[in-house]
Structures are given as structure tokens and as C-alpha cells.
Design a protein around this nucleic acid. Structure first.
Length: 461
DNA sequence: TGTAAGTCAATAAC
DNA sequence: GTTATTGACTTACA
């Protein structure tokens, strides 16, 4: 019963995806003075047209599994084709800032990896895509914004009137108020390449450093501990995301048959990460599939060595590597023992393969022909992907959130208009995935074996 | 208390 | 001017 009703309101919703947003914009002059963004943020609920309309959260909860990759892809296309910017789209449709939109579009996480909140933007995007009129509306908005901007410029030029900045906010944040809030704002910390490199090395050795290690790192690099902590948080999470997109891409390639080569299209996602990402998140990881573990550690050594593969790229950059003295490869070493013994909660649920084992680089094996290494490398890769694959296949409907009630019927699907969802599903039967899953099993096996025998420190399960 | 997830916002890159 | 990157912050959770 309620279901049909909800579907009804959902349908309405689709018809007028974000009326309120628009109204809010149109109702008053398009003056972002009161960041519509931020106010739609906290209370998230999409300012839907009153009555029975479901809140975005409800929608999210009811939503069938969406193909985040497909959605973002389409959004990117639409935005590009219509020359719409991420900022406008983000602020008006998603209630997010440009940077977040960029990130979201470039590195969407798979649906099943998203929290309810994380799914929200995707549902919004889907709804937005569903109604072609929305593009028009957004374009109108763009025009209006432009008009308003011109107006402002005019009035401020011809009218050197005092009504200047007050409202429009946009670029004043910085320019207009030179040194108003007496440095309330902390200057943004920008890590030097050498510092990043050092941190990466430390990460390779210990993705989850102990407070002590962190402190040491901070001291050696002359950074605040909070900066180091933040760096590790960010790095881990970004690496995870790179993994996700790999998973997605692998999946889509496996099924759709490369025809569409998303990676190629989105241009940067894969390639950039693969190659250039020198700082790139996964470069660092990419390198040691089985990471720090097999390769690095076996050297007994110095991260210098370990850093090799991934860092290669980067190495070319900082000419003054010598200066990179900061993290004497051994840095984290000192309290290694201590750390290893630490009672740390088992990291990412995804298991060792993910948290610990950096993103594998398919090309890796080429380097060393060492059986172990290449095997490890291969495994690493498999592990990551297969891990992911397995994960998804392991969660048949689990992928749908626990709260996502027994999958809504097709009505909902049509609401969200997703052919992709189905596609995503079949990708699970995909032989490639099966293979990966099998591969993963064997990897896990081996790792466990290794774990029980030696390198207790490295292999944390 | 530590971690993950999600985001903001400054700023670098194009 | 737009997009990408990334350090910092907030929130939720175990």
C-alpha cells in the first residue's frame, strides 16, 4: 500500500525534481548570499514540494541499487554537452560545492559502498537526469546568474554604490575582505613533495601508524601531528576510492565489453591514477601489491628501495631528492615492534587486501621476475579487484542497504530509470568476476598461510 | 578513541 | 573561468 503511494509521490518528484531548489533560487534574486548550499546541507532533505513528497532520505532508502558510475558518466556528458559547470550543478542540484562534485563525478564509489548519506547525491543526480527539462532549467539558471552578475558589475561600476559585496558572496570571500577576520582562517598547509613522499613511504610501511609513529613522523617532517594524522586519513580513504573505481571499471569492462571504455572517456580516472598519480594516490599503492610486505620488507629495507616502483614517477620530479631526507626509510621503524603489537582493530572490513595492500599495479610484475614478487603482485591486483568483486558478489542483495527494504519493485526502478542497475547485476555472473573471486580465494589462502608462518607483523589479519 | 565516510574550501592546474 | 587536488573538519559508528 504505502509502496504504491510512495511511488506516486516519487513520480511527482521526478517530474519536478527540485522545485524547491529552483524556487529558492528564483524566489529571491540569485544571490548566494545565503548559501543555499549550506542550508540544504545540514537538513539535507531536498526541499521538495511540500506535502507528501518523500524526503530525499526516504528516497535514498527506497532507491534500488544505482549504477553510480553510469550516473556520473551521464551527468558529466550532460554537463559538458550543455556547457554547464560543476559549481552550478553542485550548488543547485546536489547541494554540494564544486570540489565535491568534481570528486564525485571523477571517482564515484560503487553503490554498495556508499552510506545513506553518500547515496544521496547519486539519487539526486538520477532524478535530475530523469527529466530532460532539468537541463533546461539549469541553463536558465545559468543565464540568470550571468545576468545578475552583469547587473552587479554594472551597478558597482557606474554606481560605485555601497551595496557592493554584501550579498553575492561568491568571490568576495577572499578579495573583498582583505584582512578582516584577523587570520581567523588558518593558512592552508601545503605539503612539499618531499614531505608527501616521506609520508607515502611511511604509509607503505605502515598504513596505520601508531600515535608514536605519527609523532615521530611529524617531528621529522616538521609538521603538526594533526597534519600527519589527517594525511593518513585522507590518503587511506583516497586510496580506497581508487580501488573502487578500478573495481567499477573492471566490472564495466568485463561486461559491456569495453565498447564504452569508460576510463578512456572520463579520461582521467584511470590513466591519471595509473601513471601520473605520482602523488597520486594509487601510485604509491599501486606499486606494491602485496605491498610493503613482500617486496618492501623483504629488502629489510629502506623504504628507499621500497619506494622504487611507484615513486619512480615522482622521483623524477623532485630533483632535490637528497633533500628528502626527512623520512629516513626507517622512520616508522623504531616503534615498529611496538606498533605491530598494538591492539589495533582490524582495519577496513574489506579485509587486509584492501586497507593494507595498496592498489595493485597491473604492470608491476614486469619489474621483478622474482617469483614471489610477481606472484604477489599478481595477487595483489587480483586481491584488490577480486576482493572488490567478491565483495559485491558476496552481497547479492546485501549490496542494497540493510535498510533498503526488500528491493522495490520495478516501479521504483522505472522511477529511477535505470537500466544500469540490471547491468550491474549481471556483471556479477560475469565469468571474469568469478575468476577474480576464485583468484581472491587462493590469494587469501596464501596470505593466511604466510601469516601463520611468518611476518606476523606485516600480515595483519 | 580511532577510523571511515562525506564534505568544505583553498588553491593549483588547465 | 572551470575543474582537479588535497588538507582539514564533521559526523557516525564500533
Amino acid at each position: 500500500m504505502s509502496s504504491s503511494e510512495s511511488v506516486k509521490s516519487l513520480t511527482e518528484l521526478v517530474q519536478q525534481p527540485c522545485p524547491a531548489i529552483e524556487t529558492s533560487k528564483e524566489g529571491k534574486p540569485p544571490e548566494p548570499s545565503d548559501p543555499p548550499t549550506s542550508d540544504s546541507q545540514p537538513t539535507t532533505p531536498l526541499p521538495l514540494s511540500g506535502h507528501s513528497a518523500l524526503s530525499i532520505q526516504e528516497l535514498v532508502a527506497m532507491s534500488p541499487e544505482l549504477d553510480t558510475y553510469g550516473i556520473t558518466k551521464r551527468v558529466k556528458e550532460v554537463l559538458t554537452d550543455n556547457n554547464l559547470g560543476q559549481r552550478l550543478f553542485g550548488e543547485t542540484i546536489l547541494g554540494l560545492t564544486q570540489g565535491s562534485v568534481s570528486d564525485l563525478l571523477a571517482r564515484p564509489k560503487p553503490w554498495h559502498k556508499l552510506s545513506l548519506k553518500g547515496r544521496e547525491p547519486f539519487v539526486r543526480m538520477q532524478l535530475w537526469l530523469n527529466d530532460p527539462n532539468n537541463v533546461e532549467k539549469l541553463m536558465d539558471m545559468k543565464r540568470m546568474e550571468k545576468k545578475a552578475y552583469m547587473k552587479r558589475r554594472h551597478s558597482s561600476v557606474s554606481d560605485s554604490q555601497p551595496c557592493e559585496p554584501p550579498s553575492v558572496g561568491i568571490d568576495y570571500s577572499q578579495g573583498a575582505s582583505p584582512q578582516p577576520q584577523h587570520q581567523l582562517k588558518k593558512p592552508r598547509v601545503v605539503l612539499a613533495p618531499e614531505e608527501k613522499e616521506a609520508l607515502k613511504r611511511a604509509y607503505q610501511q605502515k598504513p596505520y601508524p601508531s600515535p608514536k609513529t605519527i609523532e615521530e613522523l611529524a617531528t621529522q617532517l616538521n609538521l603538526k601531528t594533526s597534519t600527519v594524522i589527517n594525511w593518513f586519513h585522507n590518503y587511506r580513504s583516497r586510496i580506497r576510492r581508487e580501488l573502487f573505481i578500478e573495481e567499477i571499471q573492471a566490472g564495466s569492462q568485463g561486461q559491456t565489453g569495453a565498447s564504452d571504455s569508460p576510463s578512456a572517456r572520463s579520461g582521467r580516472a584511470a590513466p591519471s591514477s595509473e601513471g601520473d598519480s605520482c602523488d597520486g594516490v594509487e601510485a604509491a599503492d599501486a606499486e606494491e601489491p602485496c605491498g610493503p610486505t613482500a617486496a618492501t620488507k623483504s629488502q629489510g629495507g629502506p623504504a628507499e628501495v621500497a619506494a622504487a616502483p611507484a615513486e619512480r614517477v615522482e622521483a623524477a620530479r623532485p630533483a632535490d631528492k637528497a633533500k628528502a631526507q626527512p623520512l629516513p626509510s626507517g622512520t616508522p621503524g623504531p616503534d615498529d615492534a611496538e606498533d605491530s603489537g598494538r591492539p589495533r582493530p582490524p582495519p577496513p572490513p574489506e579485509g587486509p587486501a584492501e586497507g593494507r595492500v595498496p592498489v595493485p599495479n597491473p604492470a608491476a610484475p614486469a619489474a621483478g621476475e622474482d617469483a614471489t614478487t610477481s606472484a604477489a603482485a599478481a595477487e595483489g591486483h587480483g586481491a584488490a579487484q577480486a576482493g572488490a568483486a567478491e565483495r559485491s558478489s558476496a552481497l547479492p542483495s546485501t549490496s542494497a542497504p540493510a535498510h533498503a527494504p526488500a528491493r522495490r519493485p520495478s516501479s521504483l526502478q522505472s522511477l529511477f530509470g535505470l537500466p544500469e542497475a540490471a547491468g550491474a547485476r549481471d556483471s556479477r555472473d560475469n565469468p571474469v568476476r568469478k575468476k577474480k573471486a576464485a583468484n581472491l580465494n587462493s590469494i587469501i589462502h596464501r596470505l593466511e598461510k604466510a601469516a601463520s608462518r611468518e611476518e606476523p607483523i606485516e600480515w595483519e589479519f
